[in-house]
Design a protein around this nucleic acid. Structure first.
Lengths: 231, 231
DNA sequence: CGATCAATTGACTTAGCTCAAAGCATGTGG
DNA sequence: CCACATGCTTTGAGCTAAGTCAATTGATCG
């Protein structure tokens, strides 16, 4: 369970401003599979307190793209419904703090350090997104899956090397939708990695990594610094 | 030839701050093929006054990824050399205004409206990048090329429908590197589109569009709003 | 006008998609 | 608590789009 107030204070905001920002946020709880009600008026900033969620974009019917997975501590920006609409959907029961982007920024503006920190993070996120997404366009299915697993290990349990075990909150379909792969291809890659001893799986969601460095190497030298939470 | 000062004033900055920002920038001219000297210390913000340039990332030797093409009026952020280094390379003779990101932001901080506007643009750019790049992962070669051509028509000559003619400043290899396609595939797609009468080509760089809407449809309903200059 | 490098075209290979069927988890009701 | 039903996942066989290798054509610049 991540605290929004704590995250803000890390940006060296004054406690007063942190409190006022907190007051601005609306706590929202979603249970597994539920969707954050969409808003046609305003862009929103959403802080994830606990659980996990997927941010999707539906350009055309029958083709869902998953833009990102989000975990506790993440700060997600959800654009208002306009060009191809965005949806934030709970993968597990999830607790959020939802802000209207404009009023959040109005207030943050009083604390230029916060605003600037948010900007710096945003520029970094843009670059990460660009490098990462662009790489996706150049990578094989195996590399995409390896890259995905390494990034999940880092985000879910903070591991970048050695071995660890995580529970993936998303389905194979979700993974495919986020990497531009079909569900069968995702499954086959899991099988291959399992056969080669790079991972072990139990049930649908448990994945054990035996050597994260080796897996990262499979991803095509994905630098671990590229795989941090967005905000 | 775009004016940096003019672009800043559009953000409703005071003329004083605009002047001080101008003073902070270092004008740089590059001739075709030249590269902006890299900087290991600071992230930089680069304004494109005239000409065009490509922003590349070299994760591994022998594999260059083009992150974006840039045209007059664009505001590019070039990260310092760290994770896989970034290079800004002139496609034509180009005039730039180069800022140290930190000092630019220090100054912009005095004008919260500017800072916030930059932030808002940056968040938008992040979303565009995500949607666009993610789509690339799901698109066929034909759709990628069509999408690319439509976006170039919009950025180079401002056309979104009807017919127009542009001169592409980048090579087929550059196009491939930016879309995750091989040069031969790029060429074949050009041939196909030419055979179908959607485009006409003269020499290496001239491309004439007969029906941009039809081309956009080929791109898979790429919304024109998704194809605007970054900043 | 010729040298050089970019672009095109062709033949072949392969990674990932499609269609189809079978195996497992998970959770629900008896 | 077990059995079954549902939906997720895995596996298989064949196909297609894009990559690879190789040769040719064409554009651009000195």
């Amino acid at each position: 369970m991540a605290s929004f107030r704590g995250a803000i204070l890390l940006n060296r905001a004054s406690p007063q401003v942190a409190d006022r920002l907190c007051a601005l946020g609306e706590p929202v709880s979603l249970s597994k599979g539920e969707e954050l009600p969409s808003d046609a008026e305003d862009d929103r900033l959403v802080f994830v307190s606990s659980g996990s969620a997927k941010l999707t974009a539906q350009a055309e019917p029958e083709q869902t793209h998953i833009l990102a997975f989000h975990f506790p501590g993440d700060f997600v920006s959800v654009l208002r419904r306009c060009d191809g609409y965005f949806r934030l959907i709970a993968l597990t029961d999830v607790e959020l703090v939802v802000f209207q982007a404009s009023s959040f920024l109005d207030l943050a503006q009083e604390e230029p350090a916060v605003l600037r920190s948010v900007l710096a993070r945003s520029i970094q996120a843009l670059h990460r997104s660009r490098t990462k997404m662009m790489r996706l366009g150049h990578k094989s299915a195996r590399q995409r899956i390896a890259d995905f697993l390494v990034s999940m290990a880092e985000r879910i349990c903070g591991c970048t090397c050695g071995s660890c075990e995580i529970s993936l909150p998303m389905s194979r379909r979700d993974i495919g939708d986020s990497l531009g792969l079909k569900i069968e291809t995702v499954s086959r890659q899991f099988t291959d990695l399992r056969d080669e001893g790079l991972i072990e799986t139990t049930g649908r969601s448990l994945v054990k990594f035996n050597d994260l460095k080796a897996l990262a190497a499979e991803a095509g030298h994905a630098l671990s610094s590229e795989i941090q939470p967005q905000n």
